Simulated assay, not measured.
Amino acid sequence: MERIVELLPELTVALGQTLLMIAVAIPAAVALGIPLGVWLFTHAPGGISPSPRAHRLVSGLVNVFRSFPFLILLIAIIPFTRLVVGTTVGTAAAIVPLTVNAIPYFARLVEQNMTQLGGGAVEAASAMGATRGQIIRNVLLVDARPALIGSITITMVSFISFSAMVGLVGGGGIGDFAIRYGYYRYETEVMAVAILAMLLLVTAVQFVGGRLVRRTDKRLA
């Protein structure tokens, strides 16, 4: 217990680094992933503005980046990371691969959210003369809001786990803390505390996300 108290300042810093990674990567994924996901939905065969060739190309690129094992991606884009932030170690460097991986991951979830809405509301809006932009803003994004919040929650939980991996390459955060003390120094209680901190963080995200979904879902009102 004394050892844990002694390391509490370092644990606090590590937790702050993890929160910083998520606080940058997830908003970036949402800001870029929603337009990309909407594009994938609207330009798919049978969509509002079908464009099969362009859709196949963009969808293929999304699949490549989304399915790339994160640890391999982390190493593969080291030159890009260095170009963007000027270093390949530390929290700032860890944010780059997290964001690159999170954008296509979230975009695919957005596309699925749109697909699950069905075509009834879109057809009704089209029949009333709504433009493509109006359909996207006032129908698709509004009706998909609970699902989008759920997808943001899923993405955050997944990338909290991914953020622990960057500790393997000196990226900071809870993962780095657990590796330095719990793995290299065989301090089991320190490892247990790091795991507990991650579990509490994930639980908090799940709780808040679930509450927001229930508040915004008209079917549960």
Results as ranks from 00 to 15, higher is better:
Ile174Glu: 03
Ala121Leu: 04
Ala144Leu: 05
Gly209Met: 13
Thr188Phe: 09
Leu200Asp: 03
Gly167Leu: 05
Gly118Phe: 09
Asn113Ser: 15
Ile136Leu: 08
Arg180Phe: 05
Met198Gln: 14
Asn138Ser: 13
Gly175Gln: 12
Gln116Phe: 05
Glu189Tyr: 06
Met198Gly: 08
Met165His: 05
Met128Asn: 11
Asp176Ala: 15
Met114Gln: 11
Ala192Cys: 02
Met128Lys: 05
Ser161Ile: 07
Leu168Ile: 13
Met128Leu: 14
Arg180Met: 11
Ala194Val: 07
Thr203Phe: 13
Ile160Glu: 00
Val193Ser: 03
Met191Ala: 14
Met114His: 07
Ala204Asn: 07
Asn138Trp: 07
Val169Pro: 07
Tyr184Met: 09
Val205Glu: 12
Met191Gln: 13
Ile174Asn: 01
Arg185Gln: 15
Gln116Asn: 10
Arg180Tyr: 09
Ser163Lys: 01
Glu187Asp: 14
Gly209Thr: 06
Val205Asp: 10
Gly172Trp: 13
Ala194Asn: 04
Thr203His: 11
Ala127Gln: 05
Asp143Leu: 06
Ser151Ala: 15
Asp143Val: 00
Pro146Ser: 13
Leu201Met: 15
Leu141His: 00
Gly150Cys: 11
Met114Glu: 08
Leu117Ile: 12
Ala144Met: 11
Val208His: 05
Ala144Gln: 04
Ser158Glu: 06
Val169Met: 13
Arg145Phe: 09
Arg137Ser: 14
Val122Ser: 04
Gly150Glu: 04
